[in-house]
Design a protein around this nucleic acid. Structure first.
Lengths: 341, 341
DNA sequence: ACTTGGCACTCGAGTCTGATGAGTGCCAGG
DNA sequence: CCTGGCACTCATCAGACTCGAGTGCCAAGT
């Protein structure tokens, strides 16, 4: 049904269309790629490709354009991730190394990715729930107000001010602080709330169970709430080939990008950092993003569990091999840097 | 030269053009507004308004459109800030009160502003350098690594990890912490680095001048670096009336919005929170933003010195009175909430 | 069974045309 | 200084026409 030449034709169509942004016809196809056959033969092949739904023509007398299904086949079978050049790799590494803290790493990474791919880049902050606690700090603001500061091993810092049911002295707070840190430092954050909640019986929690309860609650809400921070860059890239790339306007796309919840779902269930996820056109399950493709992967953490995700979003007419290479490379470097820092 | 009726005509043109998005002609003008004269008279008035550069016609046989100079006159002399309805005020207050921390306040404020004005909203984080220190926390990560956490009275938290020249015990760190906090809590952050640097001779700094130097440096760099955080919302609003509003595409505008440095300059020298700044079209001094207008004001702080700025950005063809009212109201509420929290 | 050249056909894009009508500028009279 | 009248300009629209890229199909060749 789909012999080798037909696949080759599909690949050529995708590549030409991506680079020229114009429907590609049989004649120009044989000119640009040296397939050893005549345009008529190509036309027959294109006919079957169209019957099978891999390509389509915008209007009767125009060339062919890949469908979502066509891009899917291209990505799955016909292309390989394009590795970056050594020069690019060096530039990436250098640029990311210059970061001074977590915010800086994330910001640099997202801009880098936008520039490399010339698409919209999205980076999720390292997930709190998947991180481990490095330190918990209790800061006594007044005698009955306490600030709980949480520092994770990825360098992320979150804080929350709470009202206490009763007064506390500085010494009491200090005791509590060291008890907490002894027992939960190094533990995954998801477990922390539970650990604080029922400290081993051997530990003297003296007469302040109220404080324990408060801190435990704070940890729980922190984990729930702030898992969803994402950063964007390169939205201006959407307005480049516009008219042809996005059916109507870029407005629904911009709207989707503002909905961080949508973005997080797009980045997807973060699998392991090895896997690249590609979601094409209507596969996106979000109406505003039909016409767009998302390439994402996990980063950080270990081989089987990523800390968070990052990726790029662009028109379905997109340089998949190149973008996939960039996403993979940036994810690796960011992962390395987090592991070191 | 410009008698009352001519000014009235200009106002009518601005209002009609803003609401219809079409060049306005003499006939429709007399129909919609009950000026007591004939179209011919209006035509004469429009003639002089055009000579003086307040309006222009896109092509010979079309209606008139305000120029930047026309909008400027409109904003300065012909319009008054439109106060929000009581219902809107209540909704704003309620929405902002629900915020749990500083990040949340800023995020809610920016979305609110975007929704109220249907334009792009920009909010700057409360400036570090203008804030006062609430607390400094020193966290001992290892014996020679220290995390410095800075908490301001606006609720902002910044942290930095530093390598120390030598080892430190937990007790030494604790001493240092209380010395620092005694002397700089409540002081403006800009002074903090200096205060830490030369603590009064009476204070025992024991044998750790190195630590003092390190912390002093950290404070300095913190102040320098992170003054520039801004948050955006409503970029999708740019893609609404597009074709007519922004000469070419919205791309240069999106590019400008990604350059946070540009944004900060746009928000402008933050004057007192009472003043509304309006920058129209080519007044913006940034080529990508000719065709756009920015309305901004300070918020927080006291009457003469704001903590930071916020505002909206839209096409010059914009509902100035309404947007100005929304910006002023949101700035006030955010200021209130920061003062309380 | 596949490939090829030929050929008629389709249809978007571009160009020209004329008609329409909104809007203007000007002028003479009130 | 206002007004009605009038000739004029010019963008927009629809229709007619051409052009050409690209197709589908068929019969002949390998």
């Amino acid at each position: 049904m789909l012999d080798d030449r037909k696949l080759e034709v599909l690949r050529a169509i995708v590549e030409d269309y991506v680079s020229t942004n114009e429907p590609v016809g049989s004649k120009s196809l044989v000119e640009r790629h040296h397939l050893g056959v005549s345009p008529a033969t190509i036309r027959n092949d294109m006919g079957t490709l169209e019957e099978d739904g891999y390509i389509t023509q915008p209007h009767t007398s125009a060339g062919r354009v890949p469908t979502d299904k066509g891009y899917r086949l291209f990505v799955d079978k016909l292309s390989t991730v394009k590795p970056l050049s050594p020069a690019e790799r060096r530039a990436i590494e250098e640029f990311l190394r210059g970061a001074v803290d977590l915010d800086d790493v994330v910001n640099r990474a997202v801009r880098l990715l936008a520039q490399l791919t010339r698409q919209v880049a999205v980076v999720q902050y390292p997930s709190l729930s998947r991180s481990a606690v490095r330190h918990i700090e209790l800061v006594r603001l007044t005698e009955s107000r306490l600030m709980v500061v949480l520092i994770t091993d990825t360098g992320r810092v979150e804080q929350r001010v709470v009202e206490l049911p009763g007064a506390l002295t500085e010494d009491e707070v200090a005791d509590m602080r060291s008890v907490f840190n002894q027992h939960i430092a190094g533990r995954p954050l998801v477990d922390a709330a539970g650990l604080v909640g029922d400290l081993p019986a051997t530990v003297p929690v003296d007469d302040r169970p109220a404080l324990v309860a408060v801190v435990s609650t704070v940890l729980e809400t922190l984990v729930e709430r702030v898992d969803d921070r994402v950063v964007l860059a390169g939205t201006a890239n959407l307005a480049r080939g516009s008219a042809l790339d996005f059916p109507n306007t870029i407005r629904p796309v911009l709207e989707a990008l503002e909905e961080h919840v949508v973005l997080l779902r797009l980045l997807g269930e973060i699998a392991d950092p090895q896997t690249l996820r590609v979601s094409i056109g209507e596969e996106n399950l979000y109406e505003g993003l039909y016409g767009a493709s998302v390439i994402s992967t996990g980063y950080g953490g270990d081989a089987s569990n990523a800390l968070a995700a990052l990726g790029v979003l662009g028109p379905t007419r997109m340089d998949y091999p190149g973008a996939m290479g960039a996403v993979r490379a940036v994810a690796r470097y960011v992962g390395q840097i987090l592991a070191e820092g």
